[in-house]
């Protein structure tokens, strides 16, 4: 039987001031409705489920388990990268033109934008940021983040990215 494998399985890397982790296999539901679920550019939490504004009549529901709302299941489309730590915002600022200062982009805000030339959905959470990225672009984005995140250290240039769990990245 085929083994289930997420696009970034094993990504759990601690860089100076920021931790980069994959949150695999989140259920993602695309919902088109004229009824506003959350104001533009914001997210809403109901228990496990986060509702993300994508457009004036379009929302993405994300959660770890099944979501009992009518919509199109797009779970396989994207995977999720979590950034936490005091330097998460600095790392994001390396590749993103948005103003991410908490006065403009506080927890609960979301944006669809380009990051390192990759289309992403960016969500500000209480403990950091979530990046939803297309599965086929995920590896590029993860490599880019780890590369940019290692700039703050004494060593410059490429170095082998080895996660504490022993997976190569």
């Amino acid at each position: 039987m085929a083994e289930r494998r997420s696009p970034l399985s094993g990504l759990d890397v601690e860089l100076p001031g920021v931790t980069v982790t994959e949150v695999p296999y989140l259920t993602q539901l695309n919902v088109r409705t004229a009824t506003p679920l959350t104001p533009p550019n914001t997210t809403r939490r109901d228990g496990d489920v986060t509702t993300v504004w994508l457009g004036p009549d379009e929302y993405l529901l994300i959660g770890p388990g099944e979501i009992a709302t009518p919509g199109v299941d797009v779970s396989a489309h994207r995977t999720t990268i979590r950034l936490t730590g005091p330097r998460a915002r600095d790392l994001l600022a390396h590749g993103c033109a948005l103003d991410l200062h908490p006065s403009v982009f506080p927890p609960g805000r979301c944006a669809q934008t380009l990051f390192a030339r990759t289309p992403i959905i960016l969500i500000a959470t209480e403990d950091g940021y979530l990046i939803l990225v297309r599965s086929s672009f995920a590896r590029h984005l993860a490599d880019w983040l780890l590369d940019a995140g290692s700039e703050g250290t004494v060593r410059y240039g490429r170095k082998p990215f080895a996660s504490p769990k022993g997976h190569d990245f």
């Binding site: 550019n41 457009g55 948005l98 669809q112 934008t113 380009l114």
Partner: peptide, 10 residues
């Protein structure tokens, strides 16, 4: 009009 000012590349 929905997302605010953004870079032309988007």
């Amino acid at each position: 009009p929905w997302c605010g000012p953004r870079d032309e590349a988007e």
